[in-house]
């Protein structure tokens, strides 16, 4: 299933899609695969796999902690692609979220080819904007990969138009001005940003703003096409460092709560 199809399926059910994120390699490569498959089984519609990077300027402390441990345990770019292959085999669209240097260093064309052959759906690029992405856009187009760029509350209308025009799959709205991380209140910047994006594109809009439970998911789902959850999933794993079964149970409970939330809007 393509990312676009997953969003359309959710829309046909009159609900938002649930997009779940974990970094590859935490607690280790097989452990992350188990965790991501658990999230698929419990109701995630789209999966984002983070490529751990040494200098993650957009990540808050939770995702940093897991990604750093993954790097210390030796996770490699090839392991990320292996994780994509294992998760994409479930049929759920699986994207990689990555800072740019690991892709540039791997070789943009080579990465696109290997991601496509692993069954990956595309890339989410938090520090690559379309105006700097000529190589990636060409490679993605060659392999029919999703190009998910970000829009932010500070984006001008002209940049939202430019960015959404370059996207494929969906548009990622970072709806708070700040790093990743769970928040107790949702953002009043999110709704207006989604509205500005929807004014210029027919693509689905996924919103990431630190959602951590079903009620927050329901609120976001009332105006967005997708609810993106990262830090809360990572937290569920970090809270059970010595008991993987308990971590997976926590992921299942959280996923089911969030999946209920996106259906309540």
């Amino acid at each position: 299933m393509s990312t676009r199809t997953a969003f359309e399926k959710a829309r046909s059910e009159d609900r938002a899609a649930l997009v779940g994120y974990l970094p590859a390699g935490y607690p280790d490569v097989p452990g992350a695969i188990d965790a991501l498959r658990t999230m698929v089984d419990a109701g995630c519609d789209v999966i984002e796999i983070g490529l751990p990077y040494s200098d993650p300027v957009m990540d808050g402390p939770t995702i940093q902690a897991a990604a750093q441990q993954a790097l210390e345990r030796g996770v490699r770019t090839a392991d990320v692609l292996r994780t994509v292959e294992a998760v994409a085999a479930t049929g759920t669209p699986t994207l990689v979220m990555t800072y740019w240097n690991p892709v540039e260093h791997y070789g943009v064309a080579r990465f696109a080819r290997d991601l496509a052959s692993a069954g990956g759906a595309g890339l989410i690029t938090p520090d690559l904007t379309p105006d700097s992405a000529t190589d990636w856009i060409a490679a993605a187009d060659e392999h029919d990969l999703d190009k998910v760029f970000l829009v932010a509350p500070s984006s001008t209308d002209a940049r939202i138009t430019m960015t959404t025009a370059a996207c494929r799959g969906f548009v990622y709205a970072t709806a708070v001005m700040g790093v990743t991380g769970t928040r107790t209140t949702t953002s009043d910047l999110a709704g207006p940003l989604v509205a500005r994006a929807k004014a210029v594109t027919d693509l689905p809009i996924g919103v990431g703003l630190g959602v951590s439970d079903g009620d927050q998911a329901a609120e976001v789902a009332s105006y967005a096409d997708g609810v993106i959850v990262g830090s809360a999933f990572v937290r569920a794993l970090l809270d059970h460092p010595d008991d993987r079964a308990a971590g997976l149970r926590a992921l299942t409970i959280l996923t089911e709560d969030l999946a209920g939330g996106v259906r309540r809007a």
Partner: peptide, 9 residues
């Protein structure tokens, strides 16, 4: 400029 969109403005 390889930066998050949030800082581009």
């Amino acid at each position: 400029r390889f930066m998050p969109e949030a800082l581009v403005a």
